[in-house]
Amino acid sequence: MKIDNTLPLEYSTEQNRMNVLGFWIFLGAEVMLFATLFATYFTLAHRTGNGPSGAEIFEIAPVLIETFLLLTSSFTIGLGVHAMRLGRKNAMIAFFAVTLLLGLAFLGVEIYEFTHYVHIGAGLQTSAFTAILLTTLGTHGAHVTLGLFWGLFIILQVKKRGLTPETANKSFIFSLYWHFLDVVWIFIFSFVYLKGMM
């Protein structure tokens, strides 16, 4: 593999550049995946059957905490990629670790939220509305969970193998994924929670 030293490590080989573009294209597909969930959510939002409506079950506090955690994690992983470009391996690992911890905290709050919903009678089988609510949140949550494992693997690899074109490329792609999850969350925050509580 030819290595081009004029570019940042993550772009330094042809395969790396392809990986990055390929991942962007994958994100295009993810846009459609979540758009479909949103379309379904908006269609079913008021079809509550005998179950509760969104305004009845949403709580602002956990949602705000989740939003703040995810926004901050998106910032720290951005700093992580910046540190990586400066070649500062340890700083980068530290930022990635902080990101994953924030992600873990987010997931914790989300799990609390889910149990709370089920507890107050808004389970998966309650109504079309609760089903699509939990499915939309769950799909995002599953992405975050996958990201936690993926990020952990990347930290381990960077630690062991150092910053090579390969590990830098993986780290950068992971950061794209993480930022994207933040974008999705912003839409969930705005159009599921805030719209529901408006």
């Binding site: 962007w24 295009g28 597909a29 846009v31 459609m32 949103f38 908006f42």
Partner: peptide, 21 residues
Amino acid sequence: AIYMNIYYGVAIALVTIFGTL
């Protein structure tokens, strides 16, 4: 390519959401 991909995706996403509604 990246921006085209994103714009195209967002355009179709909006069409799908508003069309469905």
